[in-house]
Design a protein around this nucleic acid. Structure first.
Lengths: 209, 209
DNA sequence: GTCATCATGTAAGCCGTTACATGATTGC
DNA sequence: GCAATCATGTAACGGCTTACATGATGAC
């Protein structure tokens, strides 16, 4: 999951570890937040696998948005080699995604080992997939949620006090809510696939009467 | 979390590992299901800590419901010692909770290291707590959810495509739904605490008009 | 000059999963 | 007798968290 998130973010722009962590937290919420202890090893692993590489950046102007595409990588490295760091604070190690990394990212986006957290991240970065691929992803998720909902029906209710009943009902509602959401995603994607002119009609629009 | 679940279930009646696993899966859903590889070691650990102990059960009649309360533990062990196993199939190892285990269970129920999964299990077994203790538990959870909701407001929306916006909105809705649920639990518990005659009024009743 | 924050990393340890090994019981 | 299920465990492995160690930068 962490690989997917890292590659997805780096596919948008080069980032260093610290910044990566902040965006990750923002993406999945601070719960289940990745810690440095898992992030840096993950980056090292990905670098060894050739999926990302350190671009020796850091001259000036990398305050908030860490330079977009063109200015990064090679040029910065060249400047640095020139011996004119121009007020460098070169403790940062900025990473960029490689072609290998993009392939890996695609693999991870299409990976069918479903996992609640992973699915969330897949949705966050699925824009790069084709509409059909997205539909496959959503359909799989829908099937999984439907399976859970069905499973919960044929459960033997032993020892159901008030709290446990409430808990079960809440779970069912959550599952139903998630299913509704998936249906919205599917509908929106279908609409997009069929009608390429209009991007995505009323995705967040509530009940269609 | 697994300790909490095991102790909670064993507090209701003696069970063997295999059965325990089924009930666990039922309790938390098959997602995040505990596997044998974690269950048996956990039982061994708890036994070593004196929180549970193996009761040498298994004579006849332990087909589905593994004997309720009174008939369990000591009596079954006594029968077994008599040398009349009556068609025993003694491969099962039935566990029962000890006094130490009950104390530990209480500790775990009141534990404030919040964790989504753990909270669910705490609710499932919170009936043994006092109303006030339950309220504390719920209030803590509510604060945590409120914190997450607030945090999500002041998030810098960088690169929000349709899917990411939908994702965020869905997350917000889920959080709100969870908060509503907690409020229901709190209201119900308060009602119970104030008015001991009526158990828990309209917990699952939808919108109160 | 010192404190907070930014920034990167390592090491120990926990916990859980997968896969493997084993054996009893029941139904056919 | 054989297969399916029940039942209990062990071992290898992986991944994540916590805590620790280090150092640069910028504000006051």
């Amino acid at each position: 999951m962490i690989d997917l998130a890292i590659l997805g973010l780096l596919d948008e722009h080069d980032l260093h570890g610290y910044e990566l962590k902040k965006r990750l937290a923002e993406l999945v919420g601070s719960r289940s937040g990745v810690s440095f202890g898992s992030l840096y090893p993950a980056l090292a692993r990905l670098e060894k696998a050739g999926a990302v590489k350190a671009v020796e950046a850091n001259t000036v102007d990398d305050d908030t948005i860490p330079m977009t595409g063109a200015l990064s990588g090679e040029l910065a490295a060249f400047r640095a080699r020139l011996g004119r760091p121009v007020k460098s604070r070169r403790t940062k190690k900025v990473y960029g995604i490689t072609e290998t990394g993009r392939l890996r990212l695609r693999e991870l986006l299409l990976d069918d080992r479903t996992d609640d957290r992973t699915f969330t991240v897949q949705v966050a970065f699925c824009q790069t997939l084709s509409p059909d691929e997205r539909l496959t992803l959503f359909a799989r998720r829908k099937a999984e949620l439907a399976r859970r909902l069905a499973e919960r029906s044929r459960a033997t209710d032993g020892r159901t006090d008030t709290y446990r009943r409430s808990l079960r009902e809440h779970d069912t509602q959550t599952l139903t809510h998630d299913l509704t959401w998936i249906d919205e995603l599917i509908a929106a994607t279908r609409a997009e696939a069929g009608d390429t002119s209009e991007p995505l009609p009323h995705l967040t629009g509530g009940t269609t009467p």
